Amino acid sequence: MLWVDKHRPRKLDKLILHKDIGANLKKLVEVGDCPHTLFYGPPGAGKKTLIIALLREIYGPGVEKVKVETRPWKIQLPSRKLELELTTCASNYHVEMNPSDVGNNDRYVVQEIIKDMAKSRPLDIKGQRGFKVLILNEVDRLSKEAQHSLRRTMEKYSQACRLVLCCNNVSKVIEPVRSRCLCIRVAAPQKEGIMEMLQYVAKKEGIELPQPLSSRIADASDRNLRRALLMLETCRVAQLPLTDDQPVQLTDWELYIQEVCNDILAEQTPKQLYLVRGKFYELLTNCIPPELILKRLLICLLRKLDDELKHHAAELAALYEHRLQEGQKAIFHLEAFVAKFMNEYKKWSISMYG
């Protein structure tokens, strides 16, 4: 088991980070007030950890007995029958799913599948709650139609189920959904908090973690705790005992994006654009989110660009990141960004060096 999962705190009072949020959630559960909740914050901040600890606080350890299944769903529409497959992770007390996995059909998932699950509530035995919890991931990636359907579902089935929503960007969630939830901001941990967690995990694993290495891992993680723990585990696999000057290995996809960046700056031709497109396909088929690809590519480019071009590159990235949200084919927008950037970079090179 990965250290990220192995050492994840299971109880609200065992949290090392976000202790204040844990204490407030514990009070809510104790007084019996369990509203719909919306956890938002950057990746690796600890949203899933808080949700798991909250469920355990409500239902007890039985909530951790989960099974993962992919079920086919047949939804009868006025003009046709829609067949979908959706993977869920469920216990007797909760169901976790990602409605955005089905793309344009996400509104039917919200309208029919969630409605079907919301109708079956668990028995209120031994003081356990008489409602089921539905955890919806990546709510900010749902279409506007799906979010409006979600609002109606929240109102109609509030007695039988509680919704726990999870997203990175709360501004992409419509106001009617936000207003019906208790919104909880989970901030990215500071460097000191990440170092404390790294030392805690290293102690649990019985290894000595030098302070300089811990500091460099925290810096390289970009305030992403999940990433920091994966880097620590990678260092442990690469070398033991750990040393002060040991290199911190980046993930394969980050190294691949650095390679794409070097290709873009080395040559600005249609042939090079075609090769870059192939590398984008490779990243996308390995489930790297397109927004993350664009962000990491921009960071790599900014490190190597002249100050005159940095502002323009950031402006282009913002434009195509917005188009990524509106469109469906991510490869079109990633390729368009590279083509436009290559054009601007070529013009600048000619003007500078003639």
Rank of each mutant, 00 (worst) to 15 (best):
P210M: 14
V237D: 04
G206Q: 08
T70S: 09
R180P: 06
L2F: 06
R178G: 10
L250A: 15
D245G: 08
V338W: 12
D222P: 03
M117E: 05
C287T: 03
T285Q: 15
E321A: 10
P99L: 00
C34S: 14
Y59M: 11
P122E: 08
A318Y: 15
E192K: 01
L163Y: 12
E335D: 13
M1F: 05
R121W: 06
C183R: 02
K115N: 15
L198Y: 13
L316N: 14
K26Q: 11
L198R: 10
S221Y: 06
V237S: 07
I114T: 14
K191S: 12
K279T: 03
H322P: 02
H148S: 02
M231H: 10
D20K: 14
L54R: 03
V276P: 06
L230K: 07
L319V: 04
Y200E: 15
A53Y: 01
H322L: 12
C300Q: 06
I264K: 09
V133G: 01
E326W: 02
K279H: 04
V95N: 05
L134M: 12
R185F: 12
N343A: 13
T243S: 09
N98K: 06
T70G: 03
C181W: 12
R152P: 01
L77W: 14
E30R: 13
H94Q: 13
L142H: 00
A228R: 01
F280T: 05
K126M: 14
R180H: 10
Q159P: 04
A118C: 00
K119M: 04
S100E: 07
V164M: 13
I58N: 01
D245M: 02
E112P: 04
V177P: 00
H36M: 05
C161V: 14
S149A: 13
E138D: 15
Q246Y: 07
R71A: 11
N169V: 09
L213K: 00
N137T: 03
E208H: 12
K203V: 03
L283C: 04
